[in-house]
């Protein structure tokens, strides 16, 4: 696979074209805003936590490049049904993956489909695109309203 095909895998292109959970949730338990002033990427992440402490619904809206948008879209799918602890575990794993510190084929992980981002560390300028939604979601859980990568 060429480096380029590795960066823009079909799954990523497809999520960019048709982002999942791309909507606003009124009355979400947590909302946070994330932006990257260098690229102009800008998202809101909405998280609804149920009475059992599990994440019932996650959505995002805003603007970004294909990498940041696909990453946000896939994140929303991955988070639904997770407990807060499981969600934080996933954030940590995704961060390590994006930095090239975690090899999804060798190291224990719960990343599943998110492993398509395993080549991103070869594009240092794009790592921040991939992690934007994740940082934003973490800060939502931490109840920090605005987060900026870069």
């Amino acid at each position: 696979m060429s480096a380029l095909d590795e960066l823009y895998q079909q799954v990523i292109i497809e999520h960019n074209r048709k982002p999942r959970n791309f909507r606003v949730i009124e009355n979400a338990t947590y909302v946070a805003e994330g932006f990257n002033p260098i690229c102009g990427d800008h998202f809101h992440i909405y998280i609804v936590v149920g009475d059992d402490g599990c994440i019932e619904d996650v959505a995002f809206d805003g603007k970004g490049c294909a990498i940041s948008k696909a990453s946000a879209s896939m994140m929303t799918q991955a988070l639904i049904g997770k407990s807060e602890i499981e969600a934080r575990q996933l954030f940590a794993e995704f961060n390590s993956l994006a930095k090239g510190d975690l090899d999804p084929d060798k190291d224990d992980n719960t990343l599943g489909k998110l492993a398509v981002f395993s080549g991103i560390w070869k594009f240092p300028a794009r790592v921040k695109c991939a992690v934007l939604a994740w940082h934003t979601a973490t800060s939502a859980l931490d109840e920090v309203d605005i987060v900026s990568t870069e």
């Binding site: 060429s2 480096a3 380029l4 960066l7 823009y8 260098i38 690229c39 102009g40 970004g64 490049c65 294909a66 990498i67 594009f123 300028a125 794009r126 695109c129």
Partner: peptide
């Protein structure tokens, strides 16, 4: 509709150095 940063990354892989951003 492609974001300028995606354009920049793809061009770079082809050896074409441009600036993408504001």
């Amino acid at each position: 509709e492609v974001h300028a940063h995606d354009v920049g990354s793809i061009l770079d892989q082809e050896g074409v150095a441009i600036r993408a951003g504001h």
